[in-house]
Write a protein that binds this DNA or RNA. Structure first.
Length: 767
DNA sequence: CTATGTAAACAAC
DNA sequence: GTTGTTTACATAG
């Protein structure tokens, strides 16, 4: 197929695998073995506690039903006046008894229940301005049992235990639920009076609870260092960092002010931050770095003005601005929570960890016990998004929703701050007008892509990431999400077989029947080479058809965004960039105007790769342009929540803006996730099958202009109630996993437009 | 089959 | 020798 002028003709280099790939002592030595089985006292206590409490009776009025789609999960409708703590305790016991084969995860939702005496859930007597305030309480405690809560270390920046309320907001702190949560690892988001009010206004308030459904994974149950300092690989010379090369490269590049770095500096950065590479890794790791740089489209090489220095950068569209600070923190190697850890360590770095720092999180509990999410700003943003959307949908704002602009951009300093701030605990959301979001997103308990940090909290279903624009202007949260429930995919290969896609549709189909190599674009192929290349062309074609790992592009200095090269489209420039990825147009790729040869712009469309995976997978990317159509790339300042693509286009044209969409993975699927729950709650029939975005016209694809919110707010029916919920994962002794369910009834009717969100209104820090 | 890692051939400096 | 590109292969999932 394509030939690269410079590509060496290699017919066969390696016949047999090296007998021993790893140096004998390379992997062995490390890890002092810890007793995986060892259980922390606190956990033991917890178990005991649970056992003791197993006898707890559920308060009357509690309804339990099996979750229709989530294994071992039950939905528990709790009267607002119930004693949450006791319920949690009881459920915990129940879950433990069930073990892994029975219900061990519970989604708790409040379903009204009449007058309540529970402050937090108590309906507000009056809806005042205060009532309109939204308070988000995120109590994220370590998975430790309550007994240990007290001593739970709190990372800097943590708001744990604190409750901030927006001015005038009601004090919800005393809410039983909140309190309960605080005694168990849980994350709880509760609205201010409004929410409480609604939730207590009867069952109808519980009618729907799955629209936004995301999970917050447990924080490290093994939190051991209050300071937040890590004792993990970060400081370990012997331990290989759980990051893929791609991720590390990104960390390195993003650590610089200019977001560019020379190869050498990348080496240095990695060595400095991951001693393993400096002291233990074989020299070949550098080769791997180079390999990754060349391989992944997201890495773009630029040359200095004088052309003497090459800098590696991350394509703006693909840059998630990931930094080391934002990634998860692996669990302690010896942690009981990560039994696999040792094993993997001894062989080869845990692949999972390696790739993901990213995000692969499965909801099914314990799926990723080896990673500890660090609740960071991305999470914070997510919460904010959730709240905002929630409010919008719920109609908390009685007044006409004020247009909200998404100032997705974070000042560098803020970004830095954000990246370094661990967010745990209460989040204050100043109450401001909330405009309806154009794109409704639902976070479902599957896989979600968020920033790395955030993503960890969100179960992501197979999500394909799309390109994420440089976080500058638009808050881009929305990304098409693949809504299938089953497979968990990595966050990475954002552009599923993007390369393939490009190579085929773009290069090949694009008007040039003759295969051309990237090199051909920029280089001259000698006849001799040509001939020799011909020899392998078949093989190559075959190979390329299936998977091309090629990448080659030299981005000229000061090259403008690729999008500029695109022919004009309805989309904004940013979108234009995505066009290649958005099969939206009937004439997808071919239309793209890449000036590879001329401008020397990047030759290969950037495939967005997440830190984790870089190789496009053909299979993932449907050939049909449609698949990507819905993937509006969005970025939030430097924080990219999750570029997710929905190959299925389930969401149709989602406004590129809504980040929540990114978060959502399933909800809007034709099959309502929580059919049962609804029934359980006797809620009004809600046709989830309706594609919330289905009605979004192509125009929606365009980036909504701030200030021009769509008049859909009205659709937000005031009577829509949302349900707040928690998911207790009893598989974890500490109930470390909590799913937050927030329902946005009517979501499907009204696409929310995140672009209209003025984040600064919610996050003072952003100002 | 995919994603990732590793090794290596080879080219251009 | 360094940097960059590409292929080949290994391996886990």
């Amino acid at each position: 197929m394509k030939t690269s002028p410079r590509r060496p003709l290699i017919l066969k280099r390696r016949r047999l695998p090296l007998p021993v790939q790893n140096a004998p002592g390379e992997t062995s030595a490390e890890e002092p073995k810890r007793l995986p089985a060892q259980q922390e006292p606190s956990q033991a206590q917890a178990s005991k506690e649970v056992a003791e409490s197993s006898s707890c009776k559920f308060p009357a009025g509690i309804k339990i039903i099996n979750h229709p789609t989530m294994p071992n999960t039950q939905v528990v409708a709790i009267p607002s006046n119930a004693n949450i703590q006791s319920i949690i305790t009881a459920l915990t016991a129940k879950g433990k008894e069930s073990g892994s084969s029975g219900p061990n995860k519970f989604i708790l939702i409040s379903c009204g229940g009449g007058p309540t005496h529970t402050p937090g859930l108590q309906p507000q007597t009056h809806i005042t301005n205060d009532a309109r305030k939204t308070t988000v309480i995120t109590e994220t405690l370590g998975p430790k049992p309550a007994a240990r809560d007290v001593n739970l270390p709190r990372p800097p920046g943590t708001l744990l235990g604190q409750r901030r309320e927006s001015c005038g907001s009601r004090n919800l702190g005393s809410a039983p639920l909140a309190q309960s949560v605080s005694t168990a690892p849980a994350t709880y988001i509760k609205s201010g009076g409004s929410m409480g009010e609604r939730s207590l206004q009867g069952c109808d308030s519980c009618e729907l609870f799955h629209v936004i459904h995301f999970s917050l994974f447990s924080l490290n149950p093994q939190v051991e260092e209050p300071s937040g300092a890590s004792t993990s690989w970060h400081d370990s010379v012997s331990e290989r960092p759980p990051y893929s090369y791609m991720a590390m490269i990104q960390f390195a590049i993003n650590s610089t002010e200019r977001k560019r770095m020379t190869l050498k500096d990348i080496y240095t950065w990695i060595e400095d931050h991951f001693p393993y590479f400096k002291h233990i890794a074989k020299p070949g790791w550098k080769n791997s770095i180079r390999h990754n740089l060349s391989l992944h489209d997201m890495f773009v090489r630029e040359t200095s003005a004088n052309g003497k220095v090459s800098f590696w950068t991350i394509h703006p569209s693909a840059n998630r601005y990931l930094t080391l600070d934002q990634v998860f923190k692996p669990l302690d190697p010896g942690s009981p929570q990560s039994p696999e850890h040792l094993e993997s360590q001894q062989k080869r770095p845990n692949p999972e960890l390696r790739r993901n720092v990213t995000i692969k999180t499965e909801l099914p509990l314990g799926a990723r016990a080896d990673m500890k999410p660090k609740v960071t700003w991305p999470c914070f943003y997510l919460l904010v998004v959730v709240i905002v959307v929630w409010r919008a949908w719920v109609g908390l704002d009685l007044n006409p929703p004020a247009p909200i602009h998404v100032a997705g951009t974070l000042a560098p300093e803020l970004q830095a701050q954000a990246s370094q701030t661990t967010m745990m605990g209460a989040v204050l959301l100043p109450d401001e007008g909330v405009a309806p979001l154009s794109a409704a997103g639902t976070v479902k308990e599957e896989k979600l892509l968020l920033g790395e940090g955030l993503s960890s909290f969100l179960p992501v279903q197979s999500i394909k990431e799309e390109e994420t624009p440089p976080g500058e202007e638009t808050l881009h949260l929305a990304r098409p999400i693949k809504v299938e429930s089953p497979p968990l995919e990595e966050w990475p290969s954002p552009y599923p077989s993007f390369k393939e896609e490009l190579s085929h549709s773009w290069e090949d189909s694009s008007h040039s029947p003759t295969p051309k190599s990237k090199k051909s674009h920029s280089g001259i192929k000698s006849p001799a080479r040509r001939v020799s290349e011909m020899l392998v062309i078949k093989r190559r074609e075959r190979r390329e058809m299936s998977r091309s790992r090629r990448k080659q592009h030299l981005q000229p200095p000061c090259l403008d965004e690729p999008e500029l090269l695109f022919s004009e489209g309805p989309s904004t420039s940013r979108r234009a960039t995505e066009l290649p990825f958005l099969p939206d147009s009937s004439e997808p790729v071919p239309q793209l105007v890449y000036s590879q040869e001329e401008g020397g712009s990047f030759k290969t469309p950037i495939k967005e790769t997440l830190p984790i995976s870089s190789t496009p997978s053909k299979s993932v990317l449907p050939r049909t342009p449609e698949s990507w159509r819905l993937t509006p790339p969005t970025k939030v300042g430097g924080l990219d929540f999750s570029p997710v693509r929905t190959p299925h286009g389930t969401f149709g044209n989602l406004p590129d803006s809504l980040g929540l969409m990114d978060l959502s993975t399933t909800p809007l699927k034709s099959v309502p996730l929580f059919d049962s729950p609804r029934e359980l709650l006797n809620s009004e029939p809600f046709d989830l099958t309706t594609d919330p975005f289905g009605n979004s016209s192509p125009s929606n694809m365009e980036v909504p202009k701030p200030g021009s919110p769509e008049p859909q707010a009205s659709s937000l029916s005031a009577n829509r109630s949302l349900t707040e919920g928690l998911v207790l994962d009893t598989m974890n002794d500490s109930l470390s996993k909590i799913l937050l369910d927030i329902s946005f009834p009517g979501l499907e009717e009204d696409p929310l437009n995140p672009d209209n969100i003025n984040w600064s209104q919610f996050i003072p820090e952003l100002r």
